[in-house]
């Protein structure tokens, strides 16, 4: 498999200055190493505040990393010259969660879709409109006229427009940041199918970010689990699904509520405690405050990602 993206020790800190002169550092992403192969879908799962969306934005060069390097096809994204950056921008795209705030309410669908082409000086006006129509057809929203505004469309239709915008520059790689979290189940299924179909038709590579493990596991070829700015487990989907090792991954699986009622007594198994504040993460293993198996060492030493088998890696002291 060919490597498309490699992250080396990527960190993104946000510094918050308080009025009283104090400083708080929020370590949203804290030392992430990751490889994304061409053609795969890497699912990135974690709870809110774990840094998964920040990681997506760092990858797109929307936020400069505090430390670390991002390679795209072997080229260091952080040190790329301006003219080449512009070319790379065509290859990497993003789809956002909220189908409402991700489309400019004052622009028509036509303007939204042709503006990326305009930015890159592609085609004549007529060709751009043709391309926009073509792309809309590709995402299953064929429109005869492009002069309608986003508010005239439903959530699912808007998400299709958002996907079309990401596709219009013929990218290779798309970051999907919770693309279905704001949608209803029946619409979610349509969008998930579309995302899957496009991957096959257009040979796309995805980073699929979500808090919903059932969606992640449906779509991804590999899964990375993130907790408080760190990757705690990563591996092939079947390995993670069949044999989750990190206690946090296990907890995430057990907190999926299956759509069938329990036999006998109602019982819901879940983690205890709250997600710690990322400005002040626990020492040692960040998960030790909620881990049912925590040992003294977990409080002091931060575990490193270790290979369990093949590509399956876990950061946990309990794995030898």
């Amino acid at each position: 498999m060919e490597e498309l993206i490699r992250l080396e020790n990527v960190k993104k800190y946000f510094v918050k200055k308080s009025v009283l002169g104090g400083k708080k550092v929020l370590k949203a992403v804290d030392g992430v190493n990751l490889r994304i192969e061409r053609g795969e879908t890497l699912g990135l799962v974690g709870e809110s505040g774990c840094g998964k969306s920040t990681l997506g934005q760092v990858l797109l060069n929307l936020l400069p990393p505090t430390d670390g390097t991002i390679y795209y096809e072997g080229k260091d994204l952080t040190k790329i010259p301006k003219n080449e950056e512009q070319k790379l921008r065509r290859k990497i795209q993003i789809v956002f969660q909220d189908p409402y705030s991700s489309l400019d309410p004052r622009m028509t669908v036509g303007a939204i879709l042709t503006s990326p082409l305009k930015i890159h000086n592609i085609g004549t006006k007529k060709e751009r409109i043709e391309k926009a129509k073509e792309t809309l057809a590709k995402v299953g929203l064929p429109l005869p006229r492009l002069d309608r505004f986003p508010h005239e469309f439903s959530g699912g239709q808007r998400q299709r427009i958002g996907i079309a915008r990401a596709l219009i520059l013929d990218p290779e790689f798309i970051v999907l940041d919770e693309p279905t979290s704001a949608l209803d189940v029946s619409v979610q299924a349509q969008i998930l199918n579309l995302i899957r179909k496009l991957r096959e038709e257009l040979n796309l590579t995805y980073l699929f970010i979500s808090h919903d493990l059932s969606v992640i596991k449906y779509l991804s070829t590999r899964i990375a689990v993130m907790y408080l700015g760190r990757i705690v487990e990563i591996g092939k989907t079947e390995d993670i699904v069949k044999n989750p090792i990190h206690p946090y991954t296990k907890a995430l699986f057990s907190s999926i509520l299956p759509p069938h009622p329990p036999d006998g007594e109602k019982k819901i198994t879940t983690l205890e405690g709250d997600v710690p504040n990322p400005t002040n993460p626990p020492s040692g293993c960040r998960f030790h405050t909620r881990c049912p198996y925590a040992k003294p060492i977990c409080r002091e030493v931060e575990p490193k990602l270790k290979t369990v088998q093949g590509e399956h890696k876990v950061a946990c002291h309990l794995v030898i």
Binding site: G156, S186, K217
Partner: peptide
Amino acid sequence: LLRSLPSLAKEGEELPTIPGT
């Protein structure tokens, strides 16, 4: 609704949807 849940689907299978709005 029940059919369109991804938790019941297998990877690689198309999710059944409810057409229309």
